[in-house]
Nucleic acid binder design. Structure first.
Lengths: 332, 332
DNA sequence: GTGAAAGCGCTAACAC
DNA sequence: GTGTTAGCGCTTTCAC
């Protein structure tokens, strides 16, 4: 049997309420008895049972984190931001992978609520009405990270994907490229749709056909290679390509190089995210900086505010993005 | 207020014991009353409170996972293996980053035990006596993943790092390289020490000086670039280099290329791990295959066996490794 | 096949 | 400043 608060109370000759007080740092305890209790705790090797505490206090100091895939370089960075801030505020994290599968997502939300998490950070592709319904029954706060809820009902932290894609496309266009292609991600996520819209808006603003040079990948390196091949099969080949994720952009670069196409001389390549990969390729990748770690950190911070019932000015946080030019695009 | 088992019992006109039985799939319930209960659960939207259940049953169906850094491509892959198997066996995971800091590690172990995890998967650099002491007081099983306990007391899943490093070095040596360098990781971890020993043994076996071409990095890409520079400052320059991690190996490759040194013609480069990075570079990286996902998965599986008090034949699992030759080494 | 009741280890009034 | 006590929402004997 493990040692309980009652054992400590007996050992220290006080009541369990007093032990509870010193364990929880309640100031209303005489220093002398505080010491007695601490000594008893030390002697017995007492370790408070967080489950019992959770049942009695209705707070578990743990938050649920639903993530598409922790082995993705992108989400892992987000997760690190979330976990760091959680630790800072004394929360632990229950982490589960959803693979962006809606049924799994709904199931995970319920499993975590069953475990009485104090809050939830959710990352996913598309927030449906079913998600919203689950969130509403939750009775604990939720924050979305790098995930947009079009209804705007759920607190979230993002960048402006549409504008970021616009900026990237416009930069490519400003390099005298007439034909700028876009390698899209899976088409069923809101983030991707927004990127696509930003690309199209930039193309239209400069009087170009926005629909001619679009191919679709799945964010993977290999799909970048395939995307490059599709681009080269076009009769009217693009001279620049904006790729919706860095890893996929590396695939495009290597696909080009493997086929004797020089980057950036023959083809300019632009990425998205600024993962660590962007500097781990030659030429180094020009890309949109999305602050993954910060998005995770801010989302968790936002969640702590809700959990503490603090005032929150704006529940839809948009973090700034920026462009970083490296060597996969022409120097101006 | 949330709906409790008691509410369901009243709604269904049965006792809470019966509700508990149907919720837990106990067969000793008449189908008719089972249905009554299910209906009531549905009607009320009852969701069992796992915290209360945990307190009563002394099992939380959650396991703790202590990981150096979830944003590392290597550990993220391990974590995914752990989580997948955990899910398969109906466990959730509490995940925390330790940054390989001993105090944090010890603190996390205690925090997780306080949360009454049913078991613990630990990843770290060095298992000290202090760690072992914590593990012993745990009263729940522990499994190490990609982490070696030299005392052999703690169940673990690894590959044979010494032999893997030997194999890689020997392969380089077989390519008529007289001077094979080694880029070590931080020197205070057991895994790194074993790699170093494997390298030295292979060098000695072929009659070469095992101490002349060793430089130290920190597994990062940038430290790979630095390592290359150190190598080039040597008066007796190596013609091949075995790098103890893929990401660092990419740094070496790019360091070489940035300085006009051709890989593999002028310098052969060999990595370790076979992370996804190995194919995301030109030339593609020859490397030692360490099955990260499997190590995580097997460690978690091992832990489930201990948690179920199943028989375990061998508590120190060594998974096979292999060599994969790509284009950063000479074809034979 | 079902119910009653005693905990699980703690927190949080409330009393003194 | 400290003790008493009633829960928190379940599981688990033990009866019947």
């Amino acid at each position: 049997m493990n040692v309980t608060i009652y054992d400590v109370a007996r050992e220290a000759n006080v009541s369990m309420a007093t032990v509870s007080r010193v364990v929880n740092g309640n100031p209303n305890v005489k220093p002398a008895t505080r010491k007695k209790v601490h000594d008893a705790i030390e002697r017995l090797g007492y370790r408070p049972n967080a489950v019992a505490r959770g049942l009695a206090s209705k707070k578990t100091t743990t938050v649920g984190v639903i993530i598409p895939d922790i082995s993705s370089i992108f989400f892992a960075e987000l997760a690190r931001g979330i976990e760091d801030i959680a630790t800072m505020y004394n929360y632990n994290i229950i982490l589960s992978n959803s693979d962006q599968n809606k049924d799994k997502e709904i199931h995970l939300i319920n499993a975590m609520l069953g475990k009485q998490v104090d809050g939830l950070v959710f990352m996913g592709g598309k927030i449906t009405d079913d998600h919203i319904r689950e969130f509403k029954t939750a009775s604990v706060p939720i924050a979305l990270a790098a995930t947009v809820d079009e209804s705007g009902e759920t607190p979230s932290v993002n960048i402006n994907y549409e504008q970021a894609a616009y900026d990237a496309t416009e930069l490519l266009l400003s390099h005298n490229n007439e034909k700028v292609a876009f390698v899209s991600g899976p088409e069923d996520t809101v983030v991707n749709t927004q990127k696509l819209e930003g690309y199209k808006r930039a193309m239209k603003d400069q009087g170009h056909n926005p629909d001619q040079w679009i191919v679709t990948g799945d964010y993977s390196y290999d799909s970048g290679i395939e995307a490059f091949e599709q681009l080269m099969e076009m009769e009217d080949k693009p001279s620049a390509v904006f790729v919706s994720a860095d890893e996929m952009a590396l695939g495009v670069i290597h696909g080009a190089q493997d086929n004797g196409v020089r980057v950036p001389e023959d083809l300019e390549v632009f990425g998205f995210d600024n993962t660590r990969l962007a500097t781990m390729v030659r030429p180094t990748l020009s890309t949109v900086v999305q602050p993954m770690y910060d998005i995770g950190a801010v989302a968790m911070r936002l969640l702590t505010k809700f959990m503490n019932k603090e005032e929150v000015e704006d529940q839809s946080v948009i973090l700034p993005h920026r462009i970083i030019e490296r060597n996969s695009t022409q120097q101006k």
